[in-house]
Design a protein around this nucleic acid. Structure first.
Length: 525
RNA sequence: CGGGGAGUGGCGCAGCCUGGUAGCGCAUCUGCUUUGGGAGCAGAGGGUCGCAGGUUCGAAUCCUGUCUCCCCGACCA
C-alpha cells in the first residue's frame, strides 16, 4: 500500500491537463510507474493475502481475450482441454528428483481438513483431522498428468497424447510483483506424450512457435525465441525453450516456456507403451505454458505515461464511445446518435472478429470518462456531443497517438460515416503500430559488439541498456557455474540462445574456446 | 528468510515523541452555476485508527505478538 514514490502531491487538474494522466512517468521510476498503471487502469489490486491479487474486470477481460485466442491456437494443433485436481499428493513429487528439488522451496501444503475452536478463541486446524499424506497445492501439473497418462497410454496407437488445461497454480515466491510473479497465478499448461524424441521435440518447438507468434501477433509484443541455458532449465527438463520480451526499462521478461522432458517424467510416472515391434518403451513428454504474466509484459511493453495502451486484439473494448451529456433536453439526441454509431461499429469486423464497442453511458462526467479510458488503454476513444450530432461528426482519439506535437490531444473530428468506414482498418493499424514501435525498441537495444559486460551494463539501473548478444561455447558443469556466478555479480543472467541467430563464427566470450552459438545476456524480472 | 520503511473514512496523508475516545486533501452525496484537456461554489454523509494481547482511571498514541504492503538483499521454470 504505502509507496514512497507515490507520495508526491497530486498535480492540480489544470497542471495535469497539460501533462499526463499518471502522476509518475516511466523515466522517474519505472517500478512505481508500473504499479500506478495497474492501479489507475483498474487492472488489479492487492487482496490482503500475501502475494495474491484481485484481477479486476478490465484486467480479467484482457486475460479472457488472451485465453480465447490462445485456446483456439492450442485446439488448432490438435490438443484437447481437460482439468486435473488442484491438490497433488506429496508423494507424486518425490518420484522425480530434479523436479521436487526445483519446487520444494515454494510449495503450499495442505495438512488438515477441519477447523475447531482454538484455546484462545478463533479457529485452528483440528489435530484430529491431520491428513495421512499432505496434499500440495499444484505449482505445475506434470506429476498428476503424468499419472493419468500412465493409465491412458498403453499402445503406440495412443500416441501422441496431447492435453492442455487452463488453471491456477500456486508458487510460494519470496518476493512478488503484480502479474509478474504472484503466489497464485492463472495459466495454461500443455502436456503431451510422444513415441519418440523426434516427435516430442517437434511438439516442443511447435508450442514455442505458437507462443512466439502469439506474442508478436495479438499481444504486439516482440520476443526472441530460443533455448534456455542448462542452469535455467525447468526442473526435470532435458531442454527448456522460452520467448523473452524486452520491457521498456531494458529488462527481460520470460513470457512463455516450452520444455522437452525426455523420458524422465515418463519413467517416474510409468508412462509406457508397446511399440509396433511388441517392445515396451517409455514415452517422451513435453510441457509448455503461458500465464497472466503476459499481462505484465503487455503493460511494460506498451504502457506510456498516460497508462496502458492495450493492443486492439486483446482489448476487452476496442472502441469506447463517450457521450458528452449536459443533463438537458439535448441529451436524448446525443444518446440516440451514440447508440446508432455503436450499433454500426459493432457490425464491423476486425482481425476476423466482430468489433467490440462500448457505448459508455455511465453517469460520470465525459472528461473523467475520457481519461479513465485513456488510462485503461482503450485503443480508440470516440467522443460525441451536441456539436457532433448537428455536424454529423465524431471526435476520434487514437490511444497509441494521444498527442499532437504541440502537446494537445490529437482529437480528430471526423465525419461519422468516414470514421465508420475507417474504424476496422484503424484498429488493425494501431495493432501494427504498437508492434512496430516495440520491435524497433527491441532491435535497437541488443548490442552485438560488447567486449566488457561490466562496462556495457554500468548504470543500467537508471538508463535503458537492453541486452547483449555474445558468442559462446555452451560450456557445462563447473565452467558454466563460473560464468553464472560472474554474471550474477553484475546482476545479469543468460536469457536464451536465439534460434534464428546467425551461426557462431568466433570464440566463446567467456572461455575463449570455439563458439557454437550466440546467447543473450541481460537483466531480468 | 535477513535489513529498512509503512498500515488512521473509498484513495493519499497529518496526529503518535510529550496517552485524555480523531483531523486534512481528493473522492462520494445534494443543490445551483458550468461543460469538447480531468469544472466552481455551498451544504451533507462516512472512520474508533491492520489484527490480537498487555500497561493505564483512560490507548491511534506506550509495550509484546501477529498479518499485509513497499524498498534492498537472498530466492525465483
Amino acid at each position: 500500500m504505502h509507496n514512497p514514490a507515490l507520495l508526491r502531491p497530486r498535480p492540480s487538474a489544470i497542471a495535469r491537463a497539460m501533462k499526463h494522466a499518471l502522476n509518475i512517468t516511466r523515466q522517474q521510476n519505472f517500478a512505481a510507474w508500473y504499479q500506478e498503471v495497474i492501479s489507475e487502469a483498474d487492472l488489479a489490486e492487492e487482496s490482503g493475502v500475501r502475494g495474491c491479487m484481485v484481477i479486476r474486470p478490465w484486467g480479467y477481460g484482457i486475460w479472457e481475450r488472451i485465453q480465447k485466442l490462445m485456446d483456439a491456437e492450442i485446439k488448432k494443433a490438435g490438443v484437447e482441454n481437460c482439468y486435473f485436481p488442484l491438490f497433488i499428493p506429496l508423494s507424486f513429487f518425490e518420484k522425480e528428483a530434479d523436479h521436487v528439488d526445483g519446487f520444494a522451496k515454494e510449495m503450499a501444503v495442505v495438512t488438515h481438513h477441519r477447523l475447531v475452536k482454538g484455546p484462545k478463541g478463533g479457529l485452528v486446524p483440528d489435530p484430529e483431522s491431520k491428513l495421512e499424506e499432505p496434499l500440495v497445492v499444484r505449482p505445475t501439473s506434470e506429476t498428476v498428468i503424468g499419472a493419468a497418462m500412465s493409465r491412458w497410454v498403453q499402445s503406440w496407437r495412443d500416441l501422441p497424447l496431447l492435453v492442455n488445461q487452463w488453471a491456477n497454480v500456486v508458487r510460494w515466491e519470496m518476493r512478488t510483483r503484480m502479474f509478474l510473479r504472484t503466489s497464485e497465478f492463472l495459466w495454461q499448461e500443455g502436456h503431451t506424450a510422444h513415441a519418440d524424441r523426434e516427435d516430442a521435440m517437434a511438439e516442443t518447438m511447435r508450442a514455442l512457435e505458437m507462443y512466439r507468434a502469439f506474442a508478436e501477433g495479438p499481444l504486439a509484443m516482440p520476443v526472441v525465441a530460443g533455448e534456455k541455458p542448462e542452469n535455467e532449465r525447468f526442473p526435470g527438463a532435458v531442454a527448456t525453450y522460452s520467448i523473452e520480451a524486452m520491457m521498456q526499462d531494458g529488462k527481460a521478461l520470460q513470457a512463455g516456456t516450452s520444455h522437452y522432458l525426455g523420458t524422465g517424467f515418463a519413467e517416474a510416472a510409468g508412462i509406457k507403451y508397446q511399440d509396433k515391434e511388441g517392445g515396451i518403451q517409455h514415452a517422451h513428454t513435453t510441457s509448455w505454458g503461458v500465464s497472466t504474466r503476459l499481462i505484465g509484459g503487455v503493460i511494460m511493453t506498451h504502457g506510456d505515461d498516460d497508462g496502458l495502451r492495450c493492443p486492439p486484439q486483446i482489448a476487452p473494448h476496442q472502441i469506447v464511445i463517450v457521450p458528452m451529456l449536459r443533463d438537458d433536453e439535448g441529451d436524448a439526441a446525443v444518446i440516440d446518435y451514440g447508440r446508432a454509431l455503436a450499433k454500426e461499429l459493432g457490425a464491423l469486423s476486425a482481425f476476423g472478429e466482430p468489433v467490440r464497442v462500448l457505448f459508455d453511458t455511465k453517469a460520470v462526467k465525459a472528461q473523467t470518462k475520457r481519461w479513465n479510458w485513456v488510462k485503461k488503454g482503450a485503443p480508440i476513444i470516440v467522443e460525441i456531443g451536441p456539436r457532433d450530432v448537428s455536424e454529423g461528426k465524431a471526435a476520434v482519439i487514437r490511444r497509441d497517438r494521444l498527442y499532437q506535437d504541440n502537446g494537445k490531444l490529437a482529437t480528430a473530428f471526423t465525419p461519422r460515416d468516414e470514421f465508420v468506414a475507417q474504424a476496422a482498418g484503424l484498429l488493425e493499424e494501431i495493432q501494427t503500430a504498437l508492434h512496430a514501435e516495440a520491435k524497433a525498441r527491441l532491435d535497437g537495444a541488443i548490442a552485438r559488439d560488447v567486449t566488457d559486460l561490466a562496462k556495457h551494463f554500468k548504470g543500467s539501473e537508471d538508463k535503458v541498456v537492453g541486452w547483449a548478444e555474445v558468442q559462446w561455447a555452451r560450456p557445462t558443469g563447473e565452467a558454466l557455474e563460473k560464468i553464472v556466478a560472474r554474471l550474477k555479480e553484475l546482476k545479469l543472467t543468460m536469457r536464451n540462445t536465439p534460434i534464428d541467430a546467425t551461426p557462431a563464427d568466433g570464440v566463446c566470450f567467456f572461455t575463449g574456446e570455439k563458439a557454437v552459438e550466440r546467447i543473450l545476456i541481460g537483466r531480468t524480472y
